[in-house]
């Protein structure tokens, strides 16, 4: 049994009179320690998959089994707990708390779970040892995203979900951030899922899930992912 199993996942939205199907019988699996890339154009349903996987949204039908637990049956509280313990998020717009220093932003997440990493160490790991006490406003975009990654991984999540992590960053910085994410996967054995519309990023994943019109188009298994340095966009 795979670490993550999504089986016949449906997500329906009611928009006035019409029903929109965001996910239509989506099924895929991701193994533990993999770096999976979910690739799709805008509106393909990849964010929906991410939200459901991240416990931020619930599906309408189907099972989402994470490490043997079917989160599709979770209630709001269980989902929150799931997010809190098992998921680390990295957002396109970093979403750091402006009023907190880099360290505090990391602590914000690590404080609420047991067995979290030392926040200073987490920041050191992302190369921000000297920016620990800086407020987000004092950091560049890349640095902020690295703080965000540090925040996401500091609590040792089962899954690290990255939503367009490079979307707001320039090319170089984007690659740096991707490198860190990949390192997290390779060195720390974290299961990482990157959601992106950027097909150039796809080669770095062990598994690439193509979404189109709310359906799984295909799933590629990539035995030898590309090094970050080798990809370009």
């Amino acid at each position: 049994m795979s670490y993550i199993e999504v089986k016949h996942n449906y997500k329906r939205y009611q928009m006035g009179e019409t029903e929109i199907l965001a996910n239509n019988d989506v099924s895929f699996e991701i193994e533990k320690g993999e770096l999976a890339v979910i690739l799709g154009a805008s509106g393909a349903g990849k964010s929906t998959v991410l939200n459901i996987l991240g416990g931020m949204d619930t599906n309408s039908e189907g099972d989402v089994i994470i490490d043997g637990q079917n989160i599709a049956n979770y209630n709001a509280k269980q989902l929150t707990e799931y997010r809190r313990k098992d998921i680390g998020f990295v957002f396109q717009f970093y979403n750091l708390v402006p009023n907190l220093t880099a360290k505090e932003n990391v602590e914000l997440a690590s404080e609420i779970v047991e067995g979290a990493q030392d926040s200073a160490q987490a920041l050191k790991d992302v190369g921000l040892a000297n920016r620990i006490d800086n407020f987000p406003a004092q950091l560049s975009g890349g640095e902020q995203q690295r703080v965000a990654i540090a925040r996401a991984v500091a609590k040792n999540p089962k899954i690290l979900l990255c939503d367009e992590p490079t979307g707001a960053l320039d090319y170089e910085t984007g690659k740096q951030v991707l490198q860190i994410v990949q390192d997290m996967c390779r060195k720390k054995g974290a299961t990482v899922i990157i959601v992106t519309h950027n097909a150039a990023i796809a080669p770095i994943g062990n598994r690439v899930i193509h979404l189109r019109d709310a359906r799984i188009q295909r799933v590629e298994i990539n035995a030898h992912p590309e090094e970050i340095a080798n990809i370009e966009w």
Partner: peptide, 16 residues
């Protein structure tokens, strides 16, 4: 609201 959303996403319970 963003800050709150972030916190929420980070897994803070509603009360928190």
């Amino acid at each position: 609201i963003r800050e709150l959303s972030t916190v929420k996403v980070l897994g803070f319970f509603d009360n928190e």
